[in-house]
């Protein structure tokens, strides 16, 4: 299978109503997966909440102490689009109540067509996901609230 054949597959899938395609031809297997794009978020309206995010971050960072526990906020280290999964299926989305280890990949930020794995700087329990799937995120924007156990 040459590059042009792959390119024509990509074009075909893009124009179809499918987001995913896989095939096998002898030793060669091919999987193409697109992220469903919310057209609305492609417009300037998609970042309406960005300026507000800074205030939210400040409020969230205030340690919300409860029975010897407190929360930390994981913020976006780069600008891009937030996803809780990877197109390669390598990452399962983490849900509220899931245990999170320090350095564990917790989400993906797509920037300049590259997926960047974002890891947690803390160990704890995922309390809340603060960004929407596929939403644009800016530097410093809150992504997750993690409850730290002392």
């Amino acid at each position: 299978m040459n590059v042009n054949t792959i390119k024509s597959f990509i074009k075909f899938i893009k124009q179809s109503r499918y987001n995913e395609f896989s095939m096998k031809d002898g030793d060669v297997s091919l999987k193409i997966k697109f992220r469903p794009r919310d057209e609305e978020s492609e417009t300037i309206q998609g970042i309406d909440n960005l300026a507000a995010a800074k205030d939210q971050r400040a409020a969230e960072s205030a340690r919300d102490k409860k029975d010897g526990e407190f929360c930390k906020i994981i913020t976006a280290p780069i600008v891009g689009r937030f996803y809780s999964t990877m197109t390669s299926d390598k990452l399962a989305p983490i849900k509220k109540g899931d245990a999170v280890k320090k350095s564990q990949t917790v989400c993906m930020i797509e920037a300049m067509n590259i997926e960047h794995e974002i890891s947690s700087p803390y160990s704890g329990v995922m309390e809340e996901m603060l960004a929407d799937e596929g939403a644009p995120v800016m530097f410093g924007q809150p992504l997750f609230k993690i409850r730290i156990n002392n």
Partner: peptide
């Protein structure tokens, strides 16, 4: 990268 990404999003 962050500037280009900001333009894209």
């Amino acid at each position: 990268p962050n500037i280009i990404s900001a333009a894209e999003i």
